[in-house]
Simulated scan of single mutants.
Amino acid sequence: MCRWLAYSGSPVLLEDLLYKPEHSLIVQSMHSTMGAEATNGDGFGVGWYGDRETPGLFRSIEPAWNDRNLRDLAAHVSSPRVFAHIRAAIGSPVQQTNCHPFRQGRWLWMHNGFIDGFHAMKRDLALAVDPERYADIEGTTDSEMLFFLALTFGLEDDPPQAVSRAVGLVEETARRHGIGFPIQGTLATTDGETTWAFRYSSEGRSRSLFHSTDVSMLKHQYPENAALHELSDDARMVVSEPLGELRGAWREVPEASCVAIRGGEEELTPFKPLLPAGIR
């Protein structure tokens, strides 16, 4: 599978997110402790928001631990909202267009997991994508297809409902193909203002997902921790696995849930697939 993180808060150097934590995403690319595989070396990607209308994006098929360009970029770019992803491919080619995050306009999207039976369902799912958007699909992954289904079903207006409908379509299509548990994983999307993260699997046994707790509480609890005091009180992260072992810093996102983060506010709601209108 893969590992990812989503950060929002005061601007931070990418280096501080990707390299400096005790169990950083770079460490996880070699030694993941909660993923399906310990090594996630089939490429990586980083998306960040700055002064432009659309987010910046850097993706590579190099292992994250071995990319000198990423190391240099991370030491010079700071951002208030960052998506980062390390990939462990399970079928689709190792190529730049298959690396996460995926971008459309102001939106970023990344996924850890898979669609079981995607090869058999690919044509049916592709035909459900808005024809005006279909030409923008660049890669061959199930994750990007899920992104374009969510865009088709209204991601830009109501992300939780759009993702519910995309997942609902996949499950209904899988049912017609005789596939029992098609969806597995965690995913995140953002428009640069709000981050939505989802944990769901058809089987009810999703990949790991955690969100950070209130930073102001942690600052009070750990007054000598310099790294915490460099963060703004509204700083929040959602991660595939914790970046360290600081007691009380992380809470597990419950199964079949969506967490929405805007500023320092978090909202946790149940997640349930919906069948898109007009599909029986």
Rank of each mutant, 00 (worst) to 15 (best):
N225V: 13
L218C: 03
A226L: 14
E15V: 05
G192D: 03
R52Q: 14
S202V: 03
E266L: 13
K272L: 14
Y7S: 10
W107D: 04
S24P: 01
I61N: 08
F58E: 10
R59C: 10
S202N: 02
I261Y: 00
Y200K: 11
L169F: 13
R205E: 14
A38P: 03
E62Y: 11
A235C: 14
E132F: 12
R59G: 07
F114R: 12
A88F: 04
F181A: 13
P63H: 07
T269R: 12
A227N: 09
H119C: 08
L246Q: 11
R52V: 08
P63I: 08
H177I: 08
E224Y: 12
G185T: 10
K122C: 08
M145P: 00
T39N: 03
R199A: 03
P270M: 10
V129T: 05
C2S: 13
A84M: 08
H220F: 10
D51C: 11
G41Y: 00
E144W: 09
E255N: 11
V94I: 15
H76D: 06
F148Q: 02
A235V: 05
G154P: 01
A135V: 12
S208F: 05
F58L: 15
P101I: 15
W109H: 15
L228Y: 09
R247W: 04
K219P: 13
R165E: 01
K272W: 05
G278M: 06
L274T: 11
N225Y: 10
G9N: 03
C99V: 11
G43Q: 07
M1V: 13
V215G: 01
E203P: 00
P160H: 09
I261F: 00
E193Y: 01
R103H: 09
Q221S: 12
L246D: 06
A166R: 00
A36G: 15
L246G: 07
D42K: 05
E37D: 14
G263L: 12
R87V: 07
P55K: 07
M217F: 06
E132V: 10
A89T: 13
C2T: 11
P242Q: 08
A256F: 02
P21G: 10
N98E: 06
G204N: 05
F148C: 02
F118K: 09
A84L: 08
F271E: 00
G263N: 10
T190D: 06
L25G: 08
R247I: 09
V239R: 01
R87L: 09
K272M: 13
G263Q: 08
N40S: 07
Q95V: 15
G185W: 02
E172M: 11
D116S: 14
Y19R: 12
N98A: 06
P159K: 09
L13A: 03
G35L: 07
R280S: 14
